[in-house]
Simulated scan of single mutants.
Amino acid sequence: MDKSTQEYSKSLKIKHFKPDEVPWRRIGQYRYRVVEDGTNTQFRMSVIESLLPPHSEGPIFHFHEMHDEGFYVEKGTVRFHCPGRPNIDVKAGEMVVVPIRLSHKFSNPFDEEAVFINTATPGFFIRYFEYLEELVGEGTQLTPEINRKALLRFATVPLTAEDVQRIEEENKRVD
């Protein structure tokens, strides 16, 4: 190892996430907690754990301009939606990866709560959750309007109903 790498490595540490030490935070009807806020990875990656209650819609359709996402389901089932494509039901122990610019959303239409780990690379998208929490405040539900406002601030494009319909019609013609 060269001296500069050795010197630099002195500033690094392994982060050890202990779930019992990190409280759940609330965004309306949803809960989340930060596993890695990006500061330990120079914002190359962030990780959150989310809890979706039964019969919840999740975010609106959107796509990201600057980051990929991974979703590892720990408990229950999470349904992933992409306009014009079949839904994917991801069960505990399974994972999906959503690349940049793929329109998507997720939900929990099932009777059991769902818990999943969500990665974002690069990791700046973690600030979206904090901003969303600020917008929703105490006792308020997460609405599509609030969701749209927060997404726009973080290099994420919310889709309109017309966008979704157009994509679905175009994909039908391709099939």
Rank of each mutant, 00 (worst) to 15 (best):
N40A: 15
F154E: 03
S11T: 14
E57T: 14
P158K: 04
V34Q: 02
A150W: 00
R26K: 14
E169W: 00
H62S: 07
E74S: 11
H64C: 06
T119D: 12
E57G: 08
G76N: 12
S107R: 12
F124R: 07
F124E: 09
V73N: 08
S50K: 12
D163M: 09
M66F: 05
V136K: 01
P86A: 15
L135V: 02
V78T: 11
L151Q: 13
V22T: 13
D163E: 07
R79C: 11
F71L: 07
V90D: 06
R148N: 11
E134T: 14
H104M: 05
E36G: 03
D68F: 01
M45H: 04
I48D: 00
E94R: 05
I167D: 05
Y72G: 06
K149F: 01
G28L: 11
I48K: 01
E138L: 12
H64L: 05
I146R: 09
F110T: 01
S4R: 04
F125A: 07
N87P: 04
S46M: 08
P23A: 15
L51S: 09
D20Q: 11
K75V: 09
G58A: 12
F71N: 06
L51K: 08
T156G: 07
N171D: 08
I14V: 15
L51P: 00
T119F: 14
P54C: 03
D68M: 02
S50C: 07
